[in-house]
Write a protein that binds this DNA or RNA. Structure first.
Lengths: 179, 179
DNA sequence: ACACCTATGTATAAAGT
DNA sequence: TACTTTATACATAGGTG
């Protein structure tokens, strides 16, 4: 789609690269919107631009409310099972990563987060005392979920390392098909 | 791009719709890959096909390892703060959603998940006793993260309701820009 | 659904402003 | 740097198997 055919490889020139990026991103998002509208499909796009921060696009967002509706109609049993699963994997998480916080850092964190934080933190630390019980068994359960809801959504600016955590969620909670 | 210009609106005929979907999805993924390669960009695509299960695509996946490397080079302080934050928001989560499990369901869940599960579950239930302390303060902290890593990734099959949770993460952890 | 076909609409590379 | 132009490559609508 241009006067010349271009080779599919990294554009070295940074100027040319960012120019091409904005052109192609525009076309790409248009395609996404067309696909979403024509085929009544939900699409979420996460794009890391080379220069600016990464963006999440949610074209055709009217569908999200439908998904949310479905979720809120979830049965008691489904909700309960979801919770169980979440708590269980949370424990697996603690088993792997909980660490002690030195006293001199407690004030710092308390100020930043919440004064009651360490009341809970110490309770959670207690869980570690028994965590060895689960050693091998827990390894298959590195999964978790979040209960919060989304009311509406379109585009979110995110940071790179957060992506990794999100991808991890996709992978660990939902299973993998290699493409 | 076709013999006729088509109107940008939902294709009613289901047969035609799914045909168009697979054609356009293919082109769309190709565009994503081109953009990723040409501009050295990370792109993640989540597509709900009208018929089959939704898929997550991660074209040009060599970049993920770079992100992971960056993450693994995170400093001790950064890792610690991330953990604190995670635990804190986990408590917020428990505050909102923890529920009692009736005895007759314990066997069922124990069988499905793990025999030691309720040892932990009951400990977590204890946290609820003090949760009222946090009431208003906690409301701004409906955020969470996951510590697990992804080694490689390409395409994941996921379920619709899980998406909502993931989007929730994007929104709540990372801030929102309406598109 | 999937592969191929051809005409045609679209996206875009390169150049101009 | 960004917008416009224009030629061209590409994607895809409609069709058939």
């Amino acid at each position: 789609m241009g006067r010349k055919k271009i080779e599919l490889k990294l554009i070295e020139c940074p100027k040319e690269k960012s120019s091409k990026f904005s052109k192609r991103k525009k076309g790409f998002l248009k395609k996404a919107e067309e696909l979403a509208i024509l085929c009544d499909t939900d699409i979420v796009l996460l794009v890391f631009s080379p220069t600016s921060k990464p963006n999440l696009f949610y074209p055709h967002s009217r569908h999200l409310s439908r998904i949310l509706e479905k979720l809120s109609n979830m049965s008691e049993d489904e909700r309960e099972e979801r919770l169980i699963f979440r708590v269980f994997t949370l424990v697996a998480h603690l088993k792997k990563e909980t660490i002690e916080i030195p006293n001199e850092k407690r004030n710092y964190y308390s100020g930043r987060y919440n004064h009651d934080f360490f009341y809970y933190y110490d309770k959670i630390i207690e869980l570690r005392e028994a965590r060895e019980l689960l050693d091998e068994k827990i390894s298959i359960l590195r999964k978790w979920q979040d209960p919060d809801r989304v009311d509406d959504l379109a585009r979110l600016t995110i940071m790179e390392d957060h992506l990794v955590f999100n991808l991890s969620l996709f992978k660990n909670v939902l299973g993998v098909n290699i493409k």
